[in-house]
């Protein structure tokens, strides 16, 4: 297992170098030199310009600059936001829990609905239930989620008035951030109704963000079930007279889960990309909205740092999924 871990970690190195090269190059590829970019439309006098170029090390050889950049990254120094003047890493860490909370709830929703629905479609292959599930999942897979979110707002928030339109919590509540997860922080606080309000705010964004993973999980579960249901041990279990519930739930589903777990892991990247759109629609104060706002404000250090951190998070989650997969299925661990 330890060797497996080392190989997996080693495989991350080229990707890490590549991602840092990308973010390093990004700020230098934007038309105008970095100091001009940071000065923005105000402009800057030549003297100050030269001094800052020297101060930030932009006048050194490019390779040296990259080495310094990597050094900064490892110290957690990703520069300061041009707008708030606060360190980028602090801003990121402040907003990150909001995105994680949304992503977790969205994933739980996708799994809770996608798995049973996929099993149903697999078991009732070729029947109306199967066709319905497949048609809906194709629609979910093709859904422009930014539009889906707006539709749900029109239906549930505007017409029916069931859910709030935006944000994480009504402004009548003030909750001290402890964990950064609003659903937990409101429970810890003694403000009555705030927890339910936080949940209310979570409903629509997590449905929107969970839609594509839901469709993918349902399709994958269905095809994995179809494969497993034709295996001999399922027939044996049926022949032994076990209840259909037991055959499907225990014998088939357990083995069908292996590819499904992989697909769930692969959805993490999709989830973070989807969070950018979802957070924009619902004004959810997470890193997705922050990244887009930063691009709009030409706050390049924030964009640069944010992209790097998001890429690192995705790399680490993929690593975790790989490791988990190795734990579930020993064949994988020994194959490489």
């Amino acid at each position: 297992m330890f060797r497996f871990l080392l190989t997996k970690l080693g495989g991350l190195v080229p990707t890490f170098v590549g991602v840092t090269l990308l973010t390093f190059a990004m700020i230098r590829l934007i038309p105008g030199d970095p100091i001009e970019v940071m000065a923005g439309e105000r402009g800057i006098n030549p003297e100050r310009h030269a001094r800052l170029m020297h101060e930030f090390g932009f006048d050194r050889p490019i390779l040296e600059q990259y080495v310094f950049y990597i050094g900064d990254v490892f110290r957690g120094d990703l520069g300061k936001s041009l707008v708030t003047k606060k360190p980028v890493i602090d801003e990121f860490l402040l907003l990150f829990p909001a995105t994680v909370e949304l992503s977790i709830v969205a994933m739980v929703f996708a799994i809770l609905v996608g798995l049973p629905v996929g099993v149903l479609a697999g078991v009732r292959r070729g029947r109306p239930a199967d066709h319905t599930v497949m048609a809906l999942s194709l629609a979910g897979y093709s859904m422009p989620i930014f539009w889906w979110g707006l539709l749900l707002i029109i239906l549930f928030s505007v017409t029916l008035g069931w859910t709030p339109v935006s944000g994480r919590l009504d402004f009548i509540y003030f909750v001290q951030p402890v964990t950064g997860f609003m659903a937990i922080d409101t429970l810890l606080s003694d403000q009555e109704g705030s927890f339910l309000d936080a949940l209310h705010h979570l409903v629509l964004p997590s449905i929107v963000l969970g839609t594509i993973p839901l469709a993918v999980i349902a399709r994958m579960t269905r095809s994995a079930m179809l494969e497993v249901l034709s295996e001999d041990y399922v027939r044996t279990a049926r022949a032994k007279g076990l209840s259909p519930f037991r055959v499907i739930g225990v014998h088939a589903l357990r083995n069908a889960l292996i590819p499904v777990v992989t697909v769930i892991g692969l959805q993490v990247g999709t989830l973070l990309a989807g969070a950018i759109l979802t957070e924009s629609i619902f004004s959810w104060p997470g890193i997705g909205k922050w990244l887009i706002d930063s691009i709009g404000r030409r706050d390049y250090p924030s964009v640069q740092g944010g992209i790097l951190l998001v890429a690192i998070v995705i790399m680490l989650v993929n690593l975790a999924v790989d490791l988990m997969y190795g734990l579930i299925n020993p064949r994988i661990r020994h194959a490489r």
Partner: peptide, 11 residues
């Protein structure tokens, strides 16, 4: 190509 795949397409 691996590096490009490590970052979600939209991002």
């Amino acid at each position: 190509m691996d590096i490009m795949l490590a970052i979600p397409a939209l991002l």
